[in-house]
Amino acid sequence: MNYDERFSKALHMTARQWRAALDRRLRDLGMSEAAWMTIAAAAKSTPAPSQSELAQMLAVEPASMVAMIDRLTRLGFVERVPSPSDRRVKHVAVTAAGQAVYERIHQEATVFRAETLSRIDPQKLTIATEVIEQLQLIIADA
C-alpha cells in the first residue's frame, strides 16, 4: 500500500474508531451514535441550525436528518422552531432535556479526548492537526 492510500485509510479508520469508542462510552444513554451526534451538533450551533444545515454538518442525506429530528422531537430532546425570515425553514433547537443529554455527551467526549490525546507527543499532535485542517480546506475547495 502506498503512502497516500495508507494516509487515507488511517484517516478514515481513525474517524470511525473515534466515534465508535465514544459511542461505547455513551451506550447507557440508550441512543444511537447518529442521535447523540445530532443533539451535539445542534447544541453547539448558535443560532439553532436549520434542518438542512444540520444535515450538511453531519454529512447525511436531508431525508435521514428529517427522520432523526422526528425521533428526537418525539423523545423531547429537540424541537422544530420556525424561521423568522422564511416560513419554509425550520430550525432545530435543543430542549432542556436535550441540553442535559448534550452536557453528558460533552463531558464524556472531553474526558475521552484528554485520555486519548495525552498519549501522543504534543508536537506531533500539532503537526497532525495542521495537516488535517489543511486537508479540510483543500477538500472544501474541490
Rank of each mutant, 00 (worst) to 15 (best):
residue 45 S to P: 08
residue 99 Q to A: 06
residue 83 S to R: 01
residue 13 M to W: 02
residue 45 S to D: 10
residue 55 A to R: 00
residue 21 A to W: 08
residue 82 P to D: 07
residue 134 Q to E: 14
residue 43 A to S: 15
residue 80 R to Y: 03
residue 55 A to G: 02
residue 87 R to M: 07
residue 78 V to P: 01
residue 35 A to S: 15
residue 7 F to T: 05
residue 140 A to I: 02
residue 65 M to R: 04
residue 40 A to C: 11
residue 122 P to L: 12
residue 104 R to W: 00
residue 91 H to S: 08
residue 57 M to H: 07
residue 17 Q to N: 11
residue 68 M to P: 03
residue 20 A to D: 08
residue 138 I to S: 05
residue 108 E to A: 07
residue 120 I to C: 10
residue 10 A to H: 04
residue 71 R to Y: 01
residue 72 L to A: 02
residue 64 S to C: 00
residue 12 H to M: 10
residue 132 I to K: 08
residue 141 D to N: 04
residue 3 Y to V: 02
residue 77 F to Q: 03
residue 5 E to Q: 09
residue 73 T to V: 03
residue 3 Y to W: 11
residue 21 A to E: 14
residue 30 G to D: 09
residue 79 E to C: 02
residue 38 T to A: 15
residue 124 K to Y: 09
residue 61 E to D: 15
residue 7 F to R: 13
residue 35 A to N: 12
residue 70 D to Q: 04
residue 15 A to M: 15
residue 110 T to E: 15
residue 78 V to A: 01
residue 113 R to D: 10
residue 50 S to A: 05
residue 33 E to P: 05
residue 102 Y to E: 03
residue 17 Q to R: 13
residue 123 Q to W: 00
residue 46 T to R: 15
residue 138 I to V: 09
residue 54 L to I: 03
residue 46 T to M: 12
residue 96 A to F: 07
residue 14 T to I: 10
residue 111 V to A: 08
residue 93 A to G: 05
residue 91 H to C: 00
residue 79 E to R: 05
residue 33 E to T: 14
residue 5 E to L: 14
residue 76 G to E: 06
residue 43 A to V: 11
residue 68 M to L: 11
residue 92 V to C: 02
residue 59 A to H: 10
residue 137 L to H: 05
residue 127 I to Q: 12
residue 125 L to H: 04
residue 130 E to Y: 13
residue 53 E to C: 06
residue 3 Y to E: 04
residue 141 D to P: 00
residue 136 Q to Y: 12
residue 129 T to L: 13
residue 57 M to S: 06
residue 2 N to D: 06
residue 30 G to L: 12
residue 100 A to N: 05
residue 70 D to P: 00
residue 47 P to L: 09
residue 114 A to C: 08
residue 44 K to P: 08
residue 48 A to P: 10
residue 64 S to H: 04
residue 26 L to I: 04
residue 8 S to Y: 11
residue 44 K to T: 12
residue 30 G to K: 14
residue 28 D to W: 04
residue 11 L to H: 04
residue 65 M to Q: 01
residue 75 L to I: 02
residue 88 R to E: 11
residue 40 A to E: 15
residue 82 P to W: 09
residue 118 S to V: 08
residue 107 Q to D: 07
residue 73 T to E: 02
residue 41 A to D: 12
residue 11 L to S: 10
residue 62 P to E: 08
residue 101 V to G: 00
residue 116 T to K: 11
residue 120 I to M: 14
residue 27 R to W: 09
residue 85 S to K: 00
residue 93 A to Q: 09
residue 43 A to E: 13
residue 107 Q to A: 13
residue 115 E to H: 09
residue 38 T to R: 06
residue 105 I to Y: 01
residue 63 A to T: 06
residue 57 M to L: 13
residue 34 A to W: 04
residue 88 R to Y: 07
residue 28 D to G: 06
residue 129 T to H: 13
residue 70 D to E: 09
residue 54 L to A: 00
residue 43 A to W: 08
residue 60 V to N: 00
